[in-house]
Amino acid sequence: MAKLTLTRNIDAPDDFYAELIAAHEGLSKAESDALNARLVLTLANHIGDRAVLTEALAVAKSAG
């Protein structure tokens, strides 16, 4: 376990957050859902490591 980075790792988090929200601006719910799905897949491929991905799924699930 604990291969997944769970400590802060992004410089200028406010900037990234704003960029994420901006990417969804003007999109319908369906378009936003599609964008999120493409984003998840793109990031997942970048990570690649199956153990990390499984951990990330568990973290995301348990936080909700």
Binding site: D33, A34, A37, R38, V40, L41, T42
Partner: peptide, 12 residues
């Protein structure tokens, strides 16, 4: 959601 991911894969 399964369809959303499926279509996302196809779009990418």
């Amino acid at each position: 959601i399964s369809r959303i991911f499926r279509d996302a894969v196809l779009d990418l």
